[in-house]
Lab assay of single mutants.
Amino acid sequence: QVATSTVRILGMTCQSCVKSIEDRISNLKGIISMKVSLEQGSATVKYVPSVVCLQQVCHQIGDMGFEASIAE
């Protein structure tokens, strides 16, 4: 089973930030795809909930120095 959710990301300033986040999160087990939008300050994450949760994704992004939260 696959889920798609949006994560809000604060602190991104350039495409390099976007690429860094996409590269790191895409390597997590259970992540199918991730598309980060600098303009919208968010990311669309396609993932397998039984393998990885959005809290883990937000935590990983937080470790990179950005502020991440699950969009309502």
Rank of each mutant, 00 (worst) to 15 (best):
C14N: 05
Q15L: 10
L10P: 05
G62R: 15
I61P: 01
A71V: 14
I61A: 03
V18C: 04
S26Q: 10
T6K: 09
V7Y: 00
S20V: 10
T44W: 09
R24H: 11
S50F: 07
C53V: 08
E72T: 14
T13Q: 07
G11M: 04
V57A: 02
G62A: 14
I9M: 00
Q55I: 11
M34D: 00
R8E: 07
V18T: 06
K29I: 13
I25S: 01
T44Y: 14
E72I: 09
V57N: 03
I21G: 03
G65P: 02
G65H: 03
Q1A: 06
V48E: 15
R8S: 09
L10E: 10
A3M: 14
G65A: 03
V48S: 14
M64W: 04
C17K: 03
Q40Y: 13
I70W: 08
K29V: 11
Q40M: 12
Q55A: 11
R8H: 10
D23H: 13
K19H: 09
S26V: 09
Q1I: 07
C53M: 08
S16Q: 13
I25C: 05
L38M: 06
E22I: 08
Y47N: 01
V2E: 15
S26T: 11
I31P: 00
E22Q: 07
C58G: 08
S42T: 14
E39I: 10
C53K: 11
S16A: 13
L38D: 01
T4A: 05
T4M: 10
E72N: 10
S69P: 03
R8N: 11
C53D: 12
V48C: 12
G65C: 05
T44N: 07
E22G: 03
G11H: 04
D63C: 07
Q55C: 14
V45S: 01
S16L: 10
V36M: 01
V52W: 02
K29M: 12
Q60T: 14
Q55E: 11
L38A: 01
C14H: 03
T6D: 06
T6M: 13
Q55N: 08
F66T: 02
M12D: 04
T6S: 08
L28A: 04
S37P: 01
L10A: 12
I32P: 00
V51G: 03
I31C: 04
I31D: 00
S37M: 07
V51Y: 07
Q1W: 10
E39W: 08
S37V: 06
G11S: 00
V52Y: 00
R8G: 07
I32G: 00
K46Y: 10
Q40H: 14
G62D: 13
C14D: 07
V51R: 04
I21R: 02
V51F: 06
R24S: 12
K19S: 09
C58E: 09
S5V: 14
G65K: 01
K29S: 11
D23K: 11
I70C: 14
G11I: 07
P49I: 07
E72P: 11
S50E: 15
V57E: 03
A43G: 14
H59S: 14
V52G: 01
E39P: 08
A3F: 15
R24G: 09
Q40R: 13
V45E: 03
A71Y: 09
M64D: 02
I31F: 03
V36C: 08
S33A: 10
S50T: 09
V48W: 15
S26E: 06
V7K: 01
I25P: 00
S42E: 12
I9D: 04
T13R: 14
Q15Y: 11
S50V: 05
S5M: 09
I21Q: 00
G65L: 05
S26I: 10
V45R: 01
Q56N: 09
M12K: 04
I21S: 02
E22R: 04
S26W: 04
S33I: 05
M34S: 03
Q40C: 15
E22N: 04
V2R: 00
G11D: 04
N27K: 14
Q15M: 14
I25M: 07
L54E: 01
Q60K: 12
I21A: 01
C17P: 04
V57L: 07
E72S: 12
G11Y: 05
K19Q: 11
I32D: 01
C14R: 00
V52S: 02
Q60A: 15
I25Q: 00
E22F: 08
S42C: 13
L54Y: 02
S42K: 12
T44S: 11
G62S: 15
T13G: 03
R8L: 11
